[in-house]
Design a protein around this nucleic acid. Structure first.
Length: 469
RNA sequence: GGCGCCGUACCCAAGUGGCUAAGGGAGAGGUCUGCAAAACCUCGAUUCAGCGGUUCGAGUCCGCUCGGCGCCUCCA
């Protein structure tokens, strides 16, 4: 059974969904004001992994991820580009989906946009208003945190004392208490707005997630996942709004992946280490390697993203790919040997135990690599049968259903390349090694790597990492 | 200033009280090869930033010190 760390309790808990066999999963998605960066994708790749592992574990998963398409940045950027908010955010939503595909992230089952749910948000605010949790000021509606006893339970912050009058934002909207947050922002000149029962304006940031998660998943659902930075204030505020509106618990398990830093430093535009996925793929880094690197470190640990790490990740994937390549040549329909079957079963147990302990990906991958080594050892002493090879492939593919880092079925060899390989073989038979080596080098330059084995020549695409500079 | 995380071999990284401290990368040696590359195998920390403490027993718990990072601003 899966045990997962719950920010609400600050402990690892056994995961038991509300409805047996079904997981209702809400993931905080991107604000579509620009291309998502590699740090954003750490979180999204983790969400994808979690969802895949839940499915692997036999759950039916209903995965909802919001698109935040209205906030200060989207409005500002759209205006700067002379575009409508809708057109602007659509462009970056599509870019986000394209990047997600590149990283082999499965699309969520439902992907609601905030601006398509204005009525739901207004309705929620009206309920809060009716129940006395809000106040109005200059056309805006605020949530009064003093009315909610549970405020601070997620971030473990005590707000009951004197209201820290000193610090805190001015936020352009006046609030009674500095920590009170806006549910509905009054219309401002030149900004997008909606004409609603609350008056003209636009939603505050937090209300969308409450409205949309509850619409698609119910008042109480199983998992709410988002970056660690969202714990406060975003998720704290979501809890306040939702629980005050419904009188019921909101999400049951709060899962927060840690931040990513780049080359040892916080990623920021001013440091010049701000990386988008597109920057990396443009430099020739393989998406699989990026995904592997993002997943290979435990999600609650800060991940230092480096170019060296990317090369190491590519090499690790190659180790698995190369094994698969050989196994596929060998695989047959015969039954696997009992010993090897036991080996695979043990590896599967290790893999599941690792993933069950708070998604320990490092340990899970170790189980996989140990299995590959065991298979290789067998092979090197001539004891890996065709059936064993087939079993090994099946196990790797099973695990890859969760990690999704392998390239899949081998490609068909280009006819021209096949002709050159044959020409090289002919040269080797003539013992014209100069010519053979010339062809081999030429193919390598084209990204085709040849290996001479006892059984003949084998080819593969050379490693996904870019050539060493 | 307040709060929190981290410091395990050359690099990345599991392990959170008890068999010989996972795994990957790099490196070295070997096998194979016409050769080189590739591939495969083997090797690799008497030791877990430092010091002190608790314990029969600590990388794992507690305290202090040093070092790195993050949050406290509508940042994943």
């Amino acid at each position: 059974m899966l045990r997962i760390y719950n920010t609400l309790s600050n402990t690892e808990e056994e995961f038991r969904p509300i409805e047996e066999g079904v997981v209702r999963f809400y993931a905080c998605g991107p604000t579509v004001y620009n291309y998502a960066h590699i740090g954003n994708f750490r979180t999204f790749v983790f969400q994808d992994l979690l969802r895949r592992y839940l499915r692997y574990s036999g759950y039916q998963v209903l995965h909802v991820m919001n698109i935040t398409d209205v906030d200060d940045k989207t409005i500002q950027n759209a205006r700067a580009q002379g575009m409508s908010l809708r057109d602007y955010t659509t462009r970056y939503t599509e870019a986000f989906l394209e990047d997600s595909r590149t990283l082999r992230i499965a699309p969520p089952d439902v992907m609601p946009r905030a601006t398509d749910h204005i009525p739901e948000m207004v309705a929620l605010i009206l309920i809060l208003e009716e129940k006395g949790y809000t106040y109005r000021k200059d056309g805006s509606v605020y949530f009064n945190i003093a009315r909610f006893d549970g405020y601070g339970k997620l971030s473990k912050t005590d707000f009951s004392g004197a209201q820290a009058g000193a610090s805190v934002d001015t936020d352009k909207y006046d609030k009674a208490n500095a920590r009170d947050f806006v549910l509905w922002k009054a219309r401002k000149e030149g900004e997008d707005f909606w004409e609603t029962e609350l008056g003209p304006g636009r939603p505050g940031w937090h209300i969308e997630c409450s409205a949309m998660s509850m619409k698609y998943l119910g008042e109480t659902f199983d998992i709410h996942c988002g970056g660690i930075d969202l714990v406060f204030p975003h998720h704290e505020n979501e809890i306040a709004q939702s629980e005050c509106a419904t009188g019921r618990p909101f999400a049951r398990y709060w899962v927060h992946p840690e931040f990513l830093i780049v080359e040892g430093e916080k990623m920021s535009k001013s440091l010049g280490n701000f990386l988008t996925l597109r920057d990396l793929t443009a430099q020739g880094y393989a998406p699989e390697a990026i995904r592997y690197l993002l997943l290979s470190v435990h999600y609650r640990k800060q991940l230092n993203f480096t170019m060296d790490g990317l090369h190491q990740a590519a090499a690790a994937i190659d180790r698995l790919e190369d094994f698969l390549l050989r196994a596929r040549e060998k695989a047959s329909d015969e039954a696997p040997t009992p010993e090897f079957k036991a080996e695979a079963a043990a590896a599967r147990v290790r893999f599941r135990e690792a993933m069950d302990s708070d998604i320990n990906t490092s340990a899970a991958l170790a189980a996989l690599f140990d299995f590959v080594r065991a298979a290789n050892q067998r092979d090197s002493r001539g004891a890996l049968t065709g059936g064993d090879a087939r079993l090994a492939i099946a196990f790797l593919e099973e695990v890859d259903g969760v990690f999704n880092i392998l390239r899949g079925r081998p490609e068909i060899l280009d006819e021209e390349i096949a002709r050159q390989i044959e020409a090289r073989q002919e040269a080797r038979r003539r013992r014209d090694f100069a010519e053979a080596d010339r062809i081999r080098d030429q193919l390598l330059a084209e990204g085709i790597q040849l290996e001479d084995t006892r059984e003949g020549v084998r080819w593969k695409r050379s490693a996904g990492a870019p050539p060493v500079k």
